[in-house]
């Protein structure tokens, strides 16, 4: 059963100055199943983020349909069980991590007692518990990224959408994220993430979509990645059109 269904979506932008049309996503269809970790891989500007923003309802596709658990993105309820980590997360500077997470859990309908337990637990998991009362403006980039991951996961969502979850993290941080994703996979959650960092992708993904300049170049299973001598080799071959 597919959790996220993307049917033939296209999106183009009109640049502000030259009035040129730039195609960001061209006629893409994807099916992301329950209990699947799905990665979208591509260079900067390949259209990965655009797809994720369309799923989240921040932008609307020119053509095509998207459903999340049967609901369209313009329905706020479609995001009820979704956890989202934005690219280069930038949160409210003057709030503490604890307050941000309190908002995240209350807005998703968790009751007070449950929220408090979840917040403490997840902050300990990403090693932010000791700084939970500090303002986010004092956080380093890596700490912000970890806080963002907490923000996406604190309400125990069924669908987790991560935009560049590895960026700005040191090797320890990356290991932590990988462990978190693996844990989510074990618990039967749907994970969709996009990345331009190829390392580790093969270790956590069930399937990988490779994109270039708005076009879907192919979807590959774990087995297929393995057979083509790893992710890096596969990616270069696919993008170069071999």
């Amino acid at each position: 059963m597919s959790k996220i269904l993307i049917k033939k979506i296209s999106k183009s932008y009109i640049s502000d100055f030259k009035r040129e049309k730039k195609i960001a996503v061209d006629n893409i269809s994807l099916n992301i199943d329950t209990t699947e970790v799905f990665g979208i891989i591509g260079r900067n500007g390949a259209g990965k983020s655009t797809i994720i923003k369309m799923i989240m309802g921040f932008i609307k596709p020119d053509k095509g349909d998207i459903t999340i658990d049967g609901k369209i993105p313009s329905d706020p309820d479609s995001r009820l069980k979704v956890g989202y980590l934005p690219e280069n997360p930038y949160f409210y500077d003057n709030l503490s991590a604890e307050e941000l997470l309190k908002f995240s859990s209350t807005a998703s309908g968790l009751d007070k007692e449950k929220a408090r337990k979840r917040i403490d637990k997840i902050l300990q998991q990403v090693d932010l518990y000791s700084v939970r009362k500090q303002r986010l403006r004092t956080y380093s980039k890596g700490m912000t990224q970890r806080a963002g991951i907490c923000f996406a996961l604190v309400h125990d969502p069924d669908i987790i959408i991560l935009d560049e979850p590895m960026s700005g993290l040191d090797p320890f941080g990356r290991k932590m994220v990988i462990d978190l994703i693996k844990d989510l996979q074990k618990r039967g959650k749907t994970v969709l993430f996009c990345s331009h960092i190829l390392n580790d992708v093969e270790r956590i993904c069930n399937r990988v979509a490779i994109m270039d300049s708005g076009i879907l170049k192919g979807i590959f299973t774990k087995q297929e990645i393995f057979e083509s001598n790893g992710m890096e080799e596969l990616f270069l071959n696919v993008v170069r059109g071999k």
């Binding site: 989240m56 956890g83 989202y84 934005p86 908002f103 998703s108």
Partner: peptide, 17 residues
């Protein structure tokens, strides 16, 4: 401007809300 709005809109809020 700074996309902190994603924080709110990734939660089940409509634009009007």
């Amino acid at each position: 401007d700074k996309h902190t709005i994603y924080c709110v809109l990734s939660k089940p809020f409509s634009r009007s809300q």
